[in-house]
Design a protein around this nucleic acid. Sequence first.
DNA 1: CTGTTAGCGCCTTCAC
DNA 2: GTGAAGGCGCTAACAG
Lengths: 351, 351
Amino acid sequence: MASTNQGRKSTIYDVAKATGASTATVSMVLNGTWARYRIKEETANRILESARELGYNVNMKARGLRLSRSGLAGMVVPHYRNRFFAGLAQTFEDQARSRGLCPIVVGTQRDPAVEVSVTETLLSQRVELLFIAGVRNPTPLNELCSAAGVPCINLDLPGDGAPSVVSDNRAGARAITDVLIDKLLARGEAPDDLVLLGGVADEYATEMRIAGFRDAFEARKIAPSPDAIECCGYNAAAAKQALARRYEKHGRLPTGLLLNSITAFEGTVQFTATLPPDVWKAAIVGCFDWDPFAAYLPFDVTMLRQDVQGIIAEAFALTEKYDPQDRSLILVPTAFGKQFEEAEQTKEFDR
Amino acid sequence: MASTNQGRKSTIYDVAKATGASTATVSMVLNGTWARYRIKEETANRILESARELGYNVNMKARGLRLSRSGLAGMVVPHYRNRFFAGLAQTFEDQARSRGLCPIVVGTQRDPAVEVSVTETLLSQRVELLFIAGVRNPTPLNELCSAAGVPCINLDLPGDGAPSVVSDNRAGARAITDVLIDKLLARGEAPDDLVLLGGVADEYATEMRIAGFRDAFEARKIAPSPDAIECCGYNAAAAKQALARRYEKHGRLPTGLLLNSITAFEGTVQFTATLPPDVWKAAIVGCFDWDPFAAYLPFDVTMLRQDVQGIIAEAFALTEKYDPQDRSLILVPTAFGKQFEEAEQTKEFDR
DNA sequence: CTGTTAGCGCCTTCAC
DNA sequence: GTGAAGGCGCTAACAG
């Protein structure tokens, strides 16, 4: 359609030649700064027109080189397989775009080597800021960033090389544990039949959740069962196995189950599916993170949602008044149910 | 740690000055091309060392400007909310990285305006190729790319402005319809009690699936019910509503349900959850796309999975021998069950 | 074996 | 109002 010089992208020189103006004039017009330089409106229009016809498109490489601003905002996430990270990525993209930045989010599969190489790549591309989500040990990445002078924020899992914004896991865990204990009591079951399953023992989020779990019991002056906490790791197969062992040992499932991740929930479902329905239909389940289908499983399910909007907003706020020395830890509250629904509203044509 | 010039990123000039070598030497060493130029190994080591100390990091903006190669590979997706797009993004990232490109994937929420502006941004960043997934009308985006001389491939939904690689929806639909009819027959139900729900009537994927649905019936020389096909759109609420209307009208649910998307499945579950369990427990359900939890709902569920690995591999292959005139349409087969599991294997520390 | 130089495309300052 | 010139960081000739 457009009379493009097929194949080669056009430059401001092409536009200048086509309109008989100088490159400076073209540049000003294309940047919108032409009003300040009292360039004739007619000239401006002619240039704009010609640029469109030539399919001109700023070369951010060149502009970035000159201005030392890339227009890129980076984020690393482990993957997009759960609603939390998917929502985090989505929200990040929206907010980055609304700030005139091009979002670039990369999944690392939680592989530390990939994390480092991705960070280096992003730094090479001269991202103007970097959010690091769900990385077990963000410190090396933080150091790379600060060596490059790039603002860097840890999300979800805190680190000591940069400011962090994470969900208030402890308060959330306490709240959901409270709900589960109440449900247990209402059903005439013992609260110490509640088990916290999944997660990694020495990891921040899990520790906070364990603390919150204990808080809830302490507030009622009761104690959880001595083997109430089982950090079997984050993957589904491990949870399934852990549950199988418990079943073997006690001849039944715990009545109440607090799952440390949606994958632990997956494992739970995989295991219970191998059992006769009446054995598990009565289970009371709570879960950190949520999934649209999980709510319809034949359990009594309570899901805790993280505020992805809040997390991203706080993180961007931190980059605005960025201080390389800052190591603050910002806690963002979690909530039950559909409180943060706006984040994943679906449009008419969606699937 | 490193004796960095805090804040400002170091350049080859810094390294050159620090080592007393010239920028050219530094450049060669840092590119690994130094062996060809017979640079003393000792010099090379000195430079490498110094570069590490200074926290040096190539500026891809400058290199890209010089080489007119950005090292960036772009992909636009609607969102990451289902396993298909999440898997597509993941696989794309892996493959891009293994080709030495930095993957940059952006979600557009299926908003055409966002789609255009994102494409322009990506083109400004001089991506070396662009994959466009799940865009209703990719043609304008294809045109932007070809005007810029950037190889562009449509994924999932075909377009006529570039080559496309899409799932073989028709064959997949036929196969899953076959399975459902067999199950219906095995249970002594009439096959024409099978309903295809969800999707948009004039859209490619839906049309193909309808055709496959009909193929399965024709092969058996039977006909689906006249109102067997209901394209109520892709979102969950619409499916829920459509199902409610049917229930109202017939006083029962169809025994067999083929859902055009995971969101239609969501709507189905939302609706059936409002009914007494015995009314719907017997339902036979099929779905395009899958979800780990959906398999454990109290239905007889069959899920069709798309081969994200295959799709991405084909797309990359197309870019290698890229021909701007090429408009070929490559069909990638789908499969049942966990055939493509490798794509979403989870590691030990995962959630 | 290593240093010098000329741009890649763009933006800004400074003359005209 | 507009044009010429310099330089952002890097690489590929081309000289030493």
